[in-house]
Nucleic acid binder design. Structure first.
Lengths: 279, 279
DNA sequence: GGCGGCGATACCGCACGGGTATCGGCCCAG
DNA sequence: CTGGGCCGATACCCGTGCGGTATCGCCGCC
């Protein structure tokens, strides 16, 4: 199955074999065997190009999920085995620089809990929490709707907040009591920065490139960009930055999420604490 | 991994090997290899009994999910390959005897859709829809909250209804305009029937045993039991049965659900139709 | 028409998975 | 206290399957 995913992604047996660290002929045979076992034609080989069939597209989707599941099984088991005594640590993942206030309260409250498991904090880039939960690198996550997707996860809502525009302190708009989304999205002098996608490339368009929160704030302070962010980030603003409410921007809901089948005591306890501190 | 799940369930290498159709020594070695690969002790063998370690319990949970995922991948691919031309059929699963009115409307409306995929209907027992979706036997399901669990599934709400008590037509309570839950749960002459659990055994207690909807209605008509069910089942009541509203029973919400990663065009179309016919 | 790229096929060797026989520890019965 | 039986681990053997190299066949292109 790993083999099939590699071929389906590369659409090229030679490159896929190289990526897998094996030679091309065994790979051809492995795919052939898989096709016979499923009696399905997965790939259309026309001696010049390889294309996915309908069944192949189905298997690609399903196989990715399946591979993630076995990776998750291995990783979680390894982590559980490392735990010296009693309860194993839980890995909590969240976007770097988001919900820091809530996070601090949660960690404090959880540490004060009597029989609480240890919590390893893991910070990641935007939108990576889902995969992290699915492949076992993390056990529980803080997500922010509507930016993150909760598909396939169990969730509990924690809190909802409005958004603010982050502007250079001296900018004319920074003096306004509030702004509309349209006021800040189309500014020629302060474009919205571009973020790298999951594949590491930047979308085309104007705007400086940033790859984390710190760079973003730096760009704004330098007067090269502006941004719209949840209110709670106000506590992290440094000098030279101003925040102005944007009432018509979508509200942001912070949720705590976990893979549905991994309802361990440790995760359940952390979720309960999160609900308590946020209500 | 299949091997480990078998041993973890049997807690006995010999029986597990028998179940797997292999001899016991290869099984011992396979588990040993797995433990070395994960460097984790999964099972505590005390020469008289086998018990799961903490890490073993984690792996049991995760491995079940992973095995379901690969089964799902194989099944869905096989089904996609069988499809003669164009779009493959979608398998819709629901509890036998539930939501039949909505179901009929949905199937009719979907069939009338221009480019709609074929829909195979699959009826199952209570609470089996989740596993059916997870292991690929079905693609989309109608569930009934709060009885079914939607953990790990994407859902859309379709409709909500109250519940009614189903009683023998001649029973004194059948003449009342409405009842409270307490009125029907503790009746010595009309106990609630018992359902087999997922393992096929019946819980202890009074009440006749039933294994499907038809048997249940038969038991009620015979004056041996009563039941509380969603209102929509009124249309299916045969002679000798009476339905009385139970306003204080929890309302039942019918939802359409699908595995989050299998957002194929066919499933999406069916979901859209379902939302349309139910609103 | 020849060359080059790419997937399939042929053939080979090794290593891993599975089988049988046997050992070693433990509980229990006599 | 000792022997037998249960059960998992170990030893050893064999066959299949997977991976490697060499080569073929097909097609597009210069």
């Amino acid at each position: 199955m790993r083999y099939f995913v590699a071929v389906a992604e590369e659409l090229h047996f030679g490159r896929a074999a190289q990526r897998l660290g094996i030679a091309q002929p065994p790979l051809s045979r492995a795919i052939g065997r898989l096709e016979r076992r499923l009696n399905a034609v997965l790939l259309e080989r026309s001696s010049r190009a390889v294309t996915l069939t309908e069944a192949g597209a189905v298997l690609l989707r399903e196989a990715r999920a399946a591979l993630e599941a076995v990776e998750a099984a291995e990783r979680r088991t390894r982590r559980a085995a490392l735990a010296p005594a009693g309860e194993a640590g839980v890995v909590l993942v969240t976007k770097a620089g988001a919900s820091s206030e809530l996070l601090a309260k949660l960690l404090d409250a959880h540490a004060a809990e009597p029989g609480a498991a240890g919590v390893d904090l893991l910070l990641c880039g935007m939108g990576e929490q889902g995969p992290m939960l699915r492949d076992g690198r993390a056990d529980v996550a803080l997500l922010h709707l509507p930016f993150d997707t909760t598909a396939g996860l169990d969730t509990e809502e924690l809190c909802t907040e409005g958004q603010v525009a982050i502007l250079p302190a001296g900018h004319p708009l920074a003096a306004r009591p509030h702004l509309r989304t349209a006021d800040v999205t189309g500014l020629p002098d302060l474009p919205m920065p571009r973020w790298p996608g999951p594949d590491g490339t930047y979308p085309a368009g104007p705007g400086p490139r940033a790859r984390d929160h710190a760079q973003l704030l730096q760009l704004i302070a330098l007067g090269r960009a502006c941004w719209i962010a949840p209110e709670s980030c106000r506590t992290q603003l440094r000098e030279g930055l101003a925040a102005v409410p944007v009432p018509d921007a979508p509200t942001v809901t912070t949720v705590i999420a976990w893979p549905p089948h991994s309802r361990s005591r440790a995760v359940a306890g952390l979720v309960r604490t999160a609900i308590r501190v946020s209500s």
